[in-house]
């Protein structure tokens, strides 16, 4: 039986999935770097609003000025070690204060940002399965589930190549697929009379991909929000489709999308701060 927080999170995830599919879906035709820039712009704007509302702006302004003054002091009195050391100390103290002042808006932002990143991961974190390329479907059984006679049902286009492979000492059952036609498919895993489904997207085009469906656990539900949780009480703890993880091409450098997103969001935030009248 799912707990109340798990049910609440499932409802929130469903709403976020709809919202992100509606807003991010149309951007998927753009190069990943461009769409990530747009997402970063919005993220930066929201971050600035949160900072403006939740931070102690006068204190932050005063602290930053103090840091600037101390840096100026270091430049001016480079020939007087005593003064310089005192200025260095001032920089350190005020930096600590600045970090403390930033904690409040960071705390406000952390949970929403985590949910947003989990949604973005579904769009940017996985490469598409292509027809002709193999992929594994792995079912993790609950720890005390005992032997299970699982059957995977899949459309012919999905190209199921193996029967259920039970891996020794791991409580895992694995199948290999080699899709032949692009499309969105539903895989069904039968365990006796019970059945659970898992989505599979075969397409090189960008879009939402759900690598893991989980039965319980708040953390997993936060990290893998794209599909509804598996039925509570099932012997199946999770179903995973191994999508490749591509990275984003940043001027010839292959980088994890989260690094690109983080850098772009911060750059946008600094660029927009004055316009929003916010000190960060």
């Amino acid at each position: 039986m799912a707990t109340f927080p798990e049910r609440a999170l499932a409802g929130l995830n469903a709403a976020l999935v709809t919202a992100f599919d509606l807003t991010l879906g149309p951007l998927m035709g753009l190069p990943p770097l461009v769409s990530l820039l747009l997402v970063s712009l919005v993220t930066a704007a929201v971050m600035l609003v949160v900072v403006a509302r939740t931070s102690n702006q006068p204190a932050m302004i005063e602290t930053k000025r103090g840091i600037q003054a101390a840096l100026f002091e270091i430049r001016l009195y480079g020939d007087q070690p005593g003064l310089m050391m005192r200025a260095f100390g001032e920089v350190l103290v005020r930096n600590g204060r600045y970090l403390l002042l930033s904690l409040v808006p960071l705390a406000w932002m952390s949970v929403p940002l985590m949910l947003v990143i989990a949604q973005l991961q579904a769009f940017y974190g996985y490469d598409g399965l292509r027809p002709g390329e193999p992929a594994l479907v792995t079912v993790q059984l609950a720890a005390d589930s005992g032997p299970a006679a699982l059957v995977l049902e899949a459309p012919a286009e999905v190209g199921l190549e193996t029967g259920a492979v039970r891996l020794a000492g791991s409580n895992e059952v694995v199948w290999r697929l080699r899709p032949t036609v692009e499309g969105a498919y539903a895989l069904t895993v039968r365990d006796g009379d019970a059945a659970v489904t898992k989505s599979l997207l075969v397409s090189p085009a960008p879009g939402r991909r759900s690598p893991l469906s989980v039965a319980t656990g708040l953390v997993d539900q936060v990290l893998y929000p794209s599909e509804a949780p598996l039925p509570a009480g099932s012997r199946i703890a999770s179903i995973e489709v191994a999508y490749p993880e591509p990275g984003v091409d940043l001027f010839g450098w292959r980088m994890h999308w989260m690094i690109v997103y983080g850098v772009l969001s911060l750059a946008c935030a600094f660029a927009l701060a004055r316009r929003f009248g916010v000190t960060i």
Binding site: L136, T162, G163, A164, V165, R166, L167, A168, G169, S170, E172, V174
Partner: peptide, 11 residues
């Protein structure tokens, strides 16, 4: 390599 001796497979 994790083995399934009965089904003669390995992951």
């Amino acid at each position: 390599a994790r083995l399934d001796q009965a089904n003669r497979h390995a992951r």
